[in-house]
């Protein structure tokens, strides 16, 4: 029965070892899908390469389904899973600032580490920026302390909010995701670029 740590099936140090192994698979999958390429990541926003959209949403629906099935079989206690709390204003504000960072920098934090590991110098520059950004946040913290904690909503889930079961919401999201993939593949043809090839199977 998982999660293993919460039920004290494994020790803290084993947990760190597993974190390292999970990190390796995370990095490996990201790199194999070309998340180490900023042009590929940025391509999503211009429609010439929508891989990020496909990978991101396929991963999300796989994980949603997986968690629900594991709960169904009694392998995982969903009530012990960490659900990130919602602070509405900072979630929106933070998201907007991250969006600006994404389009200017061409990476997000996870992918920048992945890209740096294969020698992308722009990713190293991005990581340098990350440290500066976090440092600015921690140093100026009293200035945005109130905004950071405003509109605390607990840890609501979307299905509770709209009043359907997790399973039904998951199914709806699957349909939306498949529709988006279709649009994505259409966009890749429409916005294809001569100087860029989507080099994938």
């Amino acid at each position: 029965m998982g999660p293993l740590v919460v039920y004290e099936i494994i020790s803290e140090n084993t947990n760190f070892l597993l974190a390292f192994l999970i990190g390796i698979s995370f990095g490996f999958v990201l790199e194999s899908n070309g998340f180490s390429s900023s042009r590929r990541l940025a391509g999503m926003f211009y429609g010439y390469d929508t891989t990020v959209l496909k990978v991101f949403f396929t991963a999300a629906i796989t994980a949603m389904l997986g968690l629900l099935f594991m709960s169904l079989f009694g392998w995982l206690d969903l009530s012990m899973i960490y659900i990130n709390p919602t602070f509405l204003w900072s979630a929106i504000g933070g998201g907007v600032i991250m969006g600006i960072g994404f389009i200017l920098g061409g990476y997000c934090p996870g992918t920048s580490f992945c890209a740096a590991s294969i020698g992308k110098l722009d990713a190293l520059a991005f990581i340098g920026g990350l440290f500066i950004g976090v440092f600015i946040f921690t140093e100026g913290y009293p200035l945005w302390d109130d905004f950071y904690k405003a509109k605390f909503m607990g840890s609501p889930t979307l299905n509770e909010m709209i009043g359907v079961s997790r399973g039904v919401l998951t199914f709806l999201i699957i349909l939306v995701a498949l529709a988006m993939f279709w649009v994505g593949e259409w966009a890749e043809k429409k916005f294809a670029r001569k100087d860029y090839t989507i080099n994938q199977r």
């Binding site: 389904l65 969903l78 699957i174 498949l178």
Partner: peptide
């Protein structure tokens, strides 16, 4: 992918939550 996830999604939508 659709052939795999749509049936799974239907199943999970149909069963009561645990």
């Amino acid at each position: 992918l659709a052939a795999a996830v749509i049936p799974l999604g239907l199943i999970i939508a149909a069963v009561p939550e645990n």
